[in-house]
Lab assay of single mutants.
Amino acid sequence: RHRTTFSPVQLEQLESAFGRNQYPDIWARESLARDTGLSEARIQVWFQNRRAKQRK
């Protein structure tokens, strides 16, 4: 699998969602996937990585 590159618009949507809830449930992730055009799995990994980045 190649590395996913996120567009500025996608990142804005993801960061906005992260600001509201750092642990989105499956319904929120699937909604974000539809809105961004990404797969739910990529959304899930993005949130995992974003939480790890915040802990540093």
Results as ranks from 00 to 15, higher is better:
Q22P: 08
Q22Y: 02
R29L: 09
E12C: 06
S39V: 04
S39I: 04
A33P: 01
Q10W: 03
A41Y: 08
L11D: 06
Q44H: 06
R42K: 11
R29W: 03
L38T: 10
R3H: 15
Q48F: 05
L32P: 01
S39M: 02
I26S: 11
F6W: 05
A52P: 02
D35H: 14
E30T: 13
R1A: 15
N21A: 05
S39R: 07
E15G: 02
I26E: 08
S7T: 08
L32S: 01
H2N: 10
I43E: 01
H2G: 07
R3P: 15
V9H: 14
K56Y: 06
Q44C: 10
N49V: 08
L32M: 07
L38I: 09
I43Y: 00
G37Q: 13
A41T: 09
L32F: 00
L14Q: 00
P8K: 13
E12K: 10
A28M: 13
G19T: 10
A33K: 07
F6V: 08
L11A: 07
R29P: 00
T36N: 01
I43V: 10
L32I: 12
Q13P: 01
S39L: 04
R50D: 00
P24K: 01
R51T: 02
A17K: 02
L14S: 00
F47Y: 07
S16N: 10
S7W: 02
P8C: 04
L11Y: 11
A28P: 05
E40D: 12
A33I: 03
R42Q: 13
Q10A: 08
D25P: 15
N49S: 11
G19Y: 06
F47A: 01
S7F: 12
P8S: 13
S31D: 09
T36Q: 00
I26L: 10
H2P: 06
G37T: 02
T5V: 11
R51Q: 05
P24T: 04
L11G: 06
Y23L: 04
G19A: 12
G37I: 02
R51I: 06
F6I: 13
N49P: 00
F6M: 07
R51E: 00
E12F: 05
R29H: 01
W27A: 15
R50N: 04
S16H: 14
I26Q: 14
F47C: 02
